[in-house]
């Protein structure tokens, strides 16, 4: 079996894997990082969104072997020790979740959105940008509020941390 090596949440990780292994399987099954979820497994729902080299992608539609040498950030790597990332804190504060299944993908998408579109996001932009993330509890109202607040709070983060 081929070997893949990538940096996940700041740690070099390496494993021998079946070429069919998807990035989300590698994260969940090899590394036991089960914060990244599999919802639809057809790249529609966004529960599996992680960052590869700083950009949001769907980990169910990416081969682990394609990530050779990449930097991967998952929901587990977002907080600074016991201190939640501002986007995580905003989801808690604004109750941006109900069952919580879509939340890791929502938060990873939201952090990527701030990187691309800045800290002042209007509702229309947030809703448009969330088209690849589904919440089956239909809790979008609070998710949108949480993302707007989290984006504002990210402006006070050090630049390097905010970009991660």
């Amino acid at each position: 079996m081929p070997t893949v090596t990538m940096n996940v949440n700041g740690r070099q990780r390496s494993a021998d894997i079946d070429p069919r292994t998807l990035l989300v399987q590698f994260l969940r099954e090899n590394l036991r990082l089960t914060g990244t979820h599999v919802g639809c497994d057809t790249s529609q729902c966004g529960a599996c969104v992680v960052h590869i080299d700083g950009e949001a992608v769907k980990a169910c539609t990416t081969l682990a072997l394609s990530c050779e040498g990449s930097n991967v950030l998952t929901i587990e790597g977002l907080a600074n020790g016991n201190e939640l990332h501002p986007m995580q804190e905003a989801f808690r504060e604004h109750h941006g979740l109900q069952c919580g299944f879509c939340t890791p993908g929502m938060i990873m998408t939201a952090v990527d959105l701030v990187r691309r579109k800045g800290n002042n996001l209007d509702e229309k932009t947030i809703r448009e940008e969330l088209e690849g993330n589904l919440c089956r509890c239909t809790g979008y109202h609070n998710i949108v509020k949480a993302i707007a607040a989290g984006a504002r709070n990210m402006s006070s983060m050090p630049q390097s941390k905010a970009a991660e």
Binding site: S43, G46, V49, A56, V57, K58, T61, E131, G132
Partner: peptide, 8 residues
């Protein structure tokens, strides 16, 4: 697609 799809 959507933003994550456009990244790939």
């Amino acid at each position: 697609g959507d933003p994550a799809v456009r990244h790939r």
